[in-house]
Amino acid sequence: MTAVEPSAVPAARTAPEPATPAVVSFDHVTHWYGNVVAVNDISLELGPGVTGLLGPNGAGKSTILHLLSGFLSPSRGSVTIGGVAPWRHPAIFDTVGLVPERDSVYAFLTAREFVLASAKLHKLPDPKAAAERALQLVEMIDAADRPIQTYSKGMRQRAKVAAALVHDPKVLLLDEPFNGMDPRQRMHMMDLLRDLGQRGRTILFSSHILEEVERLADTVQVVVAGRLAASGDYRTIRRLMTTRPHVFLLRSTDDRELARVLMASPAVQGVALTKDGLEVRASDHGTFTRKLARSCRDAGIGLREVIPSDESLESVFAYLVGA
């Protein structure tokens, strides 16, 4: 499902819905703590695959994850996982695994003990084997017998993921999973999550590192001040922002001439000559991209580079938050 709040674009537009069954669903969910509304009338559905949960600090990401893991009950609306409401429903823990942002308090345990404890908590038939399997999955076998307090941040993170994965949950929730990981641990965690997503798990992770979200997530959910500002594929979301001109960086054999040519097109709002090339603001994305190559050829200008500079998740996010 893709939906954009009216705050981001003048009229909400919806792209065609994919036909995957929803595993996780929020139906007009509002949650408040006292007078603070952390989540405000959010409706969303998540299917198998990796979804990124984005938003500025304090936008309500952790509240959403906690609502899903059954730590909180929605003040209004309903949250369901596979049709079951997680709040006060311990059986939900068999289908959900949560990796919290905070480090566990059991720092004196070894990773193996920690994961094994989690396996026993889930009353798995063979907790030992399940713990080994989970540790293997996060590549923590070698260090599994050291107390968690001796670990680096990335290793702690992996131990937590192993504990959350021990019962092979259908839904995996992660709060800032990449925090403190070094590049290799990051890449490894990304591969792990991507792989789990491809094997049909529903994975929702929050992150501030948009480059990572861009690479890992199939879809994103953007929360701004408790409201769901947009959801879906970020490129599609960008195209839905029709009032915002698309910015392209162009380099060519003759930038000045190209600027003249482009200014003649009604699809182009403005062109700026910079030291790196041309910065073009196109109001009509379709017409501009379709005409670009031909205009260059007709004018005899060699086109060297076309870079959409505000198509990244980073700029989409900035537009959504700033709007």
Binding site: P183, R184, M187, G286, T289, R290, L292, A293, R294, C296, R297, G302, L303, R304, E305, V306, I307, P308, E311
Partner: peptide
């Protein structure tokens, strides 16, 4: 470059990116 430009113009396709591939620092760790 010219071949690419002309082919796209001939096919009347919307060109959204034409960019050099670069090395990434990440490759160091991969």
């Amino acid at each position: 470059f010219d071949t690419v430009r002309d082919t796209i113009a001939d096919l009347d396709l919307p060109l959204t990116r034409l960019e050099h591939r670069r090395h990434h620092v990440e490759e160091l760790f991969e």
